[in-house]
Design a protein around this nucleic acid. Structure first.
Length: 219
DNA sequence: TTGTGTTTTATTGCCTCC
DNA sequence: GGAGGCAATAAAACACAA
């Protein structure tokens, strides 16, 4: 040690030793990233064969100046990365189709609600119409008795509705009959609805209930 | 410069196949 | 039983914002 030179501190010694250690590590077995050419060759090989034979790996290692074990490990890690990416892609696709299905469900739900409202309105109209017809029928009978008129055979005795002859055939009762049919269908549906509730459900709930209702093949 | 998150290389332990 | 693959994980290298 020359004059004026400070003795090395503990931290200096530690720094030096760690530096030496690093250099030694670098020279020996310190992990280093593969260079671009090595990566390119490995990638190319992976494109054609993701699980190459031992001999191929050995040849590749020799050509790239790597240990066969390093090449084997690279392929192993590459397969893992590849699988992970595939899973991620699959997950995204499923998420997109899930979202689409959810949107479709919301649209159908709105349509269903709108149809129910329409049905209720028509039911009310039908009931009101029937009451008015009964009243009119009473008045009509009164008038007919007075004027000696009779009700023709082609008139329906039910609610005083006239039978209509149109393209649907002679038994067609008119729009009110359709409403009644719809009401019956709706009653039937409401039974199903009670079992497989449509309202206030999340999309996941729908899937679960549909599954239970047999809309999905698996049980 | 430094803390932090991500990527890449390597290890370990378990499993399957021959 | 040995070889090789895979999943989980460690640890080094790298990227990047603050």
């Amino acid at each position: 040690m020359s004059m004026g030179e400070m003795p090395p501190t503990n931290s200096d010694i530690w720094a030096q030793s760690s530096l030496i250690g690093n250099i030694k590590k670098c020279k020996d077995n310190m992990r280093r990233r593969f260079n671009d050419e090595q990566i390119k060759s490995l990638e190319n090989m992976f494109e054609t064969e993701s699980r190459p034979e031992l001999r191929t790996k050995q040849q590749l290692a020799k050509r790239l100046g790597l240990q066969p074990r390093q090449v084997a490990i690279w392929f192993q890690n590459k397969r893992a990365r590849s699988k992970s990416k595939e899973l991620e892609l699959e997950y995204r696709m499923l998420q997109i189709s899930y979202d689409n299905l959810g949107s479709k469900y919301e649209l159908l739900k709105k349509e269903h609600e709108s149809l129910l409202i329409q049905l209720q309105t028509l039911r009310k109209l039908s009931e009101r119409g029937a009451n008015e017809e009964i009243q009119n029928e009473g008045n009509k009978v009164e008038i007919e008795v007075k004027t000696n008129k009779f009700v023709p055979e082609t008139c329906s005795p039910e609610f005083g509705l006239p039978l209509c002859e149109d393209s649907r055939g002679i038994d067609y009762l008119g729009p009110e009959s359709d409403i009644l049919d719809m009401a019956q269908i709706a009653d039937g549906l409401s039974g199903i609805e009670n079992e497989c509730r449509f309202e206030s459900r999340t999309f996941l709930d729908v899937l679960v209930v549909d599954h239970r209702c047999g809309n999905l093949s698996e049980s």
